[in-house]
Design a protein around this nucleic acid. Structure first.
Length: 198
DNA sequence: GCAATGATTTACT
DNA sequence: GTAAATCATTGCC
């Protein structure tokens, strides 16, 4: 059921981002097992997308994006939030998919504890910074293969029809100018676990 | 070596 | 609705 490495090495990062909806994201960190269904993603293309960290430069931080797909890329934003990405495409092509929201499945108590919450609310995992914290993902997981036993994805019988998927523009990337208008944000329609629509 | 800034969240006015 | 928190990475000196 675990997704093979080849799955992440496709040419079309946008298609992968869309297909990831409904897949299971699982982490086993510090002996704590947690999982959730991916309900919101964004695609980033390293070659023609100004919003991608790897656009126009290759630095130690973005090096993992240039490697073959199937690695995790965790970026610390605003000094507070860890954003979880999946590096895709083949070596030399710096594409990535940002996971923006999941629907909790297993280990809810663990997630609540990590988030210092005592009641299950949508905001537990809605938003890239929140879901990373809930799953225990931190920057030290950057470069971790998704085929390992720390963090991985599994196929799920649950797939969404195209009429159940909302496509929109990405948020928080206004500085990328015209690239911010690309319709590379995918989310599941009428799902209460996605981050609030703008 | 040092200063500027961001794939955001949260709390407060 | 607006503003503050907070630090690794980056780019310039």
């Amino acid at each position: 059921m675990k997704l093979p490495a080849e799955y992440y090495q496709g040419e079309d990062v946008v298609a992968i981002a869309k297909d990831l909806l409904g897949k299971l994201l699982i982490t086993s960190i510090d002996g704590q097992f947690t999982s959730g269904v991916i309900v919101e993603t964004e695609a980033y293309n390293g070659r023609c997308d100004r919003a991608c960290h790897a656009f126009g430069r290759r630095t130690p931080r973005t090096e993992v994006l240039y490697k073959a797909g199937g690695l995790s890329y965790v970026y610390l934003c605003y000094g507070i939030h860890s954003l979880f990405n999946i590096a895709t495409n083949v070596e030399g092509k710096a594409d990535a998919v940002l996971i923006r929201a999941i629907e909790p499945v297993e280990g809810v108590e663990v997630m609540l504890k990590r988030r210092k919450m005592d009641v299950l609310k949508p905001q537990l995992t809605a938003g890239p910074g929140s879901l990373s914290e809930a799953l225990g993902i931190t920057t030290r997981l950057t470069g971790t293969p998704l085929s390992g036993s720390t963090i991985w994805l599994e196929d799920n019988d649950k797939t969404y029809d195209s009429d159940e998927i909302l496509i929109g523009t990405r948020v928080g990337v206004a500085y990328a100018k015209e690239d911010a208008l690309l319709p590379w944000r995918f989310r599941v329609k009428d799902n209460k676990w996605i981050s609030k629509a703008k």
